[in-house]
Amino acid sequence: MLARLPEFIDPLHLADKRGELKGQIPVSKLDRLADILFSDTGAVAVELYFGREGKLAKVEGQIETVLELECQNCLQMLQWPIKHAIKLGIVTSLDQADRLPEDYEPLLIDEGKILLKNIVEDELLLVLPTFPKHPHNCLVQETDNSEVDFSQNEQQAPKQNPFSILAKLKNTGDL
């Protein structure tokens, strides 16, 4: 076990050695997440175990963090806790990826070494919601009279039947 996570890893070599990685990656180093984050503070706790099951080289473990996302309703900070299990099969071709057991996702590698943060960032992007929102109604109600609250106006106004005009015409015999 390493106390500090390496920047680059060789997944096949780690699988052969039954390697294990535990540590933290700062959220600020996850570049592809930057656009959806409200703040890049904090870190992602990473626990990865490499091994082999027959010919299958695999990575299993979990990542855990609390990301500060931007709510798509109120544009304020929204804390989004994540605890995600990782189960990857290490493959070098798309043909190998097609033959993976159903409960494994492919980790396609071209060369020996890859960035560890890319694996973590890919997994985070897969579990994040497309439109993060607070679980409660977070839109701020304005008390200014110039602001119109459409939801209240719709509820108060009686619903008109769009066919009422046709009913009047039918009753008068003009149709």
Rank of each mutant, 00 (worst) to 15 (best):
L126G: 08
A57Q: 01
D35E: 15
L33P: 09
N171G: 11
S93N: 02
Q24Y: 08
Q79W: 02
N137A: 14
K133L: 13
Q62R: 15
P129F: 09
N145V: 12
E123V: 00
M77D: 08
K168L: 15
A97Q: 06
L107N: 03
L48Y: 08
K133C: 10
I25K: 04
Q156I: 12
C138M: 08
E102N: 10
S39L: 09
P106N: 03
T41Y: 08
L48A: 04
E47M: 08
G89S: 01
L33K: 08
E111G: 05
E147K: 12
Q156S: 15
K133P: 00
H136K: 11
H136L: 13
L75F: 11
M77K: 15
K117V: 10
L116Q: 03
Q96W: 00
L2W: 06
K29F: 13
R32N: 13
E7C: 02
A3G: 15
I82K: 02
R4C: 03
S146I: 07
C71S: 08
K58V: 06
W80D: 02
W80Q: 12
E121C: 07
G23T: 10
N153T: 06
Q76N: 13
S146G: 15
Q155V: 07
C71Q: 02
K133F: 09
I25L: 13
I114P: 01
S164H: 07
R52C: 07
L115N: 09
A3Q: 14
L169T: 04
E111A: 09
I63A: 00
D103N: 14
P106M: 03
M1R: 08
G89P: 02
V59F: 01
Q152V: 15
L128D: 06
K133D: 02
L107C: 03
I63C: 04
I90F: 01
Q72M: 09
Q156P: 00
F150Y: 14
K22E: 13
E102G: 06
E154C: 07
L69A: 04
I82F: 01
E7P: 00
K55F: 08
G54I: 09
K17P: 00
A15T: 01
I109S: 03
E20T: 13
P106T: 05
V91H: 05
I90M: 04
L2C: 05
P11K: 04
E68H: 15
I25V: 14
N145T: 14
N73D: 11
L88Y: 03
A3F: 12
T130D: 12
R4T: 14
L115W: 05
T92G: 04
H84D: 09
L88G: 00
A97E: 07
A3P: 06
E64K: 13
L108E: 05
L5H: 06
Y104Q: 04
L37P: 08
M77P: 00
T172A: 09
D103G: 02
I119V: 15
E70N: 08
L88Q: 02
T143P: 01
